[in-house]
């Protein structure tokens, strides 16, 4: 087995009284896509910044690609690419100018840079936009440019902080195809997101909430070991039904999805459909059905975040 690309023990970062990241343990294996799933303010960006050496941890050990951080941050820079959450290339430079800038800063020679840029323009479908200023591009186009710029020097490790927050589903799918291409070529990717469908594509996933890791594992394994059953409920007055269900201690959460309620029932109830039928509900549900858990269900159970 090869050495992990990222190994983190007890990583903590505080800002004054606020603990943005609390005692995080993390192991990222090579050639995988590792996802950080978490709501706003859960510490995703803070963690990525510490792993790239931009922020000094308050406590904990960090080893990235064999470099001890924050001590060896400068030596790590050549081997990592970082796509920031907020677009950080130059709005007033064109696509090609931005790529040329980044490639020269990373020390690519003139000829090598020219070739590399042509490859990137083709890979990320930026050819027709090559002379467009970054500030005048659409969100999805900018995201592609940012990914191209982060991979100019072909880094073995990529950090992508919410890379698809401004991208439509079709483009998001294409974007992820490119990520799998990169992994195929030998890269390791750490990506943060708050989209469930995106998290589901990761090889491995950490669910963050308030700076803490609530769950960690492959998405399928997480869903299998969720610790709750999922029942879809149909009925006449769903709002009233939902309030009654949420009040039951065995119900982890109840959320409305259109004309149905998605109810998570604690795993100590062996037959949740029968158990729900037996509850004195008013009005009674018209239809009850046990379904497979989704990642969102995992998220809700592991964070204890019963979002309506």
């Amino acid at each position: 087995m090869t050495e992990p690309v990222i190994e983190v023990r007890g990583l903590t970062r505080t800002f004054g009284d606020l603990t943005a990241v609390a005692a995080l343990d993390l192991t990222v294996e090579p050639r995988t896509i590792y996802g950080f799933l978490g709501p706003n303010g859960s510490g995703k960006t803070t963690t990525v910044r510490m792993l790239t050496g931009l922020l000094t941890p308050s406590a904990g050990q960090v080893r990235v690609l064999g470099h001890e951080l924050p001590r060896d941050a400068e030596r790590l820079k050549r081997s990592i690419g970082y796509m920031t959450q907020k677009f950080s290339l130059y709005d007033d430079l064109t696509v090609v100018e931005n790529l040329r800038f980044v490639s020269a800063v990373y020390g690519l020679g003139r000829r090598a840079a020219r070739q590399r840029i042509e490859v990137l323009l083709a890979t990320y479908a930026l050819g027709p936009l090559r002379d467009r200023r970054a500030g005048q591009m659409s969100g999805g186009q900018r995201q592609r440019l940012a990914l191209a710029a982060a991979t100019v020097h072909e880094p073995p490790l990529l950090f992508l902080d919410e890379p698809t927050s401004a991208v439509d589903p079709q483009n998001r799918r294409d974007f992820w195809e490119r990520l799998f291409d990169l992994v195929d070529a030998g890269a390791t990717i750490l990506v943060s997101t708050h989209y469930m469908d995106e998290a589901e594509r990761c090889h491995r996933l950490a669910i963050l909430k308030d700076g803490r890791k609530c769950a960690d594992g492959a998405p399928a394994a997480l869903m299998a070991a969720m610790g709750a059953h999922v029942v879809e409920v149909e009925g006449s007055d769903l709002r009233a039904l939902k309030a009654q269900l949420a009040a039951l201690p065995e119900v982890v959460s109840a959320a409305q999805l259109g004309s149905r309620l998605r109810v998570l029932v604690h795993e100590r109830i062996p037959d949740p459909v029968a158990w729900l039928r037996a509850q004195p509900l008013n009005p009674m549900p018209t239809h009850l059905e046990s379904v497979h858990p989704s990642l969102e269900d995992v998220f809700v159970t592991s964070t204890g975040d019963a979002r309506a």
């Binding site: 790239t52 931009l54 400068e74 820079k77 920031t84 290339l89 800063v105 990373y106």
Partner: peptide, 9 residues
Amino acid sequence: NMEMLINTP
């Protein structure tokens, strides 16, 4: 732009 810049060598 700084976050990108300081992440380069």
